[in-house]
Simulated scan of single mutants.
Amino acid sequence: MAEHYSSFERGGTKWLLQRLTAVFLIGVLAFHFMLLHFVNHAYEITFAGTQARMGQIGYFATMWLFLVTATFHGVNGVYNALINQGLAGTRKRIVGAVLALASLALVAQGTYVALAMNGFL
């Protein structure tokens, strides 16, 4: 029988955050689909409507948290999948640094767009 291996330490912080972000993402994704695919259909979505939704602090905060948690969840999952495949040593540090920089750039750009849609910029 094959032994179970995971780069996540059970009960560790990264393990817990991966699960918590998954639960949050499922809920927010359901909200997103309900609002933007069932309540409002794709052909009804306009730039002005997006600005109006982003002008509401609750919606803005939810979408920004969606951006941050999705970025963390995705990058953390990719990084740990690479570790599970045997990534180690210098390559592990380089990949970790590149993924961290890419994450920061993604969150910064997403925040900029969200603030512009909010009318703050």
Rank of each mutant, 00 (worst) to 15 (best):
G58M: 05
V113G: 06
V23E: 03
Y43L: 07
L16Q: 14
L82M: 09
G58V: 06
A100D: 02
A48I: 10
V113N: 14
F72Q: 02
V28Y: 04
R19W: 08
R10G: 10
I57G: 06
L36K: 00
Q56C: 00
V68G: 00
R19H: 08
T111Y: 09
A100L: 11
S6R: 06
W64D: 12
T90C: 09
A61G: 05
I26G: 08
A61Y: 02
L99D: 02
Q56N: 08
Y59W: 14
A81N: 05
H73F: 05
E44C: 12
L67W: 06
Y59M: 13
G74W: 01
G77I: 01
H73A: 03
Y59S: 13
F47V: 13
G74E: 02
A52Y: 14
F8T: 04
L36H: 12
T71K: 03
A52L: 02
R19C: 10
A22I: 01
A81R: 12
A100C: 03
V28A: 14
G49R: 09
A52N: 10
G89Q: 07
W64I: 04
Q18P: 04
F72H: 05
S6M: 06
H73L: 03
I57T: 12
T46E: 07
G27M: 01
A88G: 01
T21M: 01
F47L: 15
A22N: 11
L67G: 01
L101T: 14
G12F: 03
G89T: 10
T50I: 15
V98L: 15
G77F: 00
I83V: 15
A61Q: 04
L67Y: 01
N40K: 12
Q18T: 07
G96I: 15
R10N: 07
N76T: 05
L82Y: 07
Y59A: 05
V23I: 08
L101R: 04
Y112M: 13
V75W: 15
I94P: 04
T62D: 11
H37V: 01
F38P: 05
G11C: 07
Y112W: 13
T111F: 13
M54V: 09
Q51M: 13
T62C: 06
F47E: 12
A105H: 08
T13L: 15
Y59R: 08
L36S: 00
Y43P: 00
A70M: 04
G89D: 10
R19S: 02
G86I: 00
S103A: 15
N40F: 14
V113P: 02
R10L: 06
K92N: 03
L67E: 00
I83Y: 09
F24V: 07
L35K: 13
G74V: 03
H37A: 03
I94L: 12
V95S: 09
S6N: 15
V98C: 15
A22E: 09
N40C: 07
Q56K: 12
I57N: 01
A61E: 02
Q85C: 11
V113E: 04
Q109E: 05
A97W: 10
L16I: 12
L99H: 09
F72K: 10
L99E: 06
L87F: 01
L87G: 08
L16W: 11
T50M: 11
V107K: 00
R19A: 06
A42N: 08
S7D: 02
V98A: 12
T62R: 01
L20Q: 13
A102Y: 10
A22D: 12
V78C: 06
F33L: 13
L67F: 02
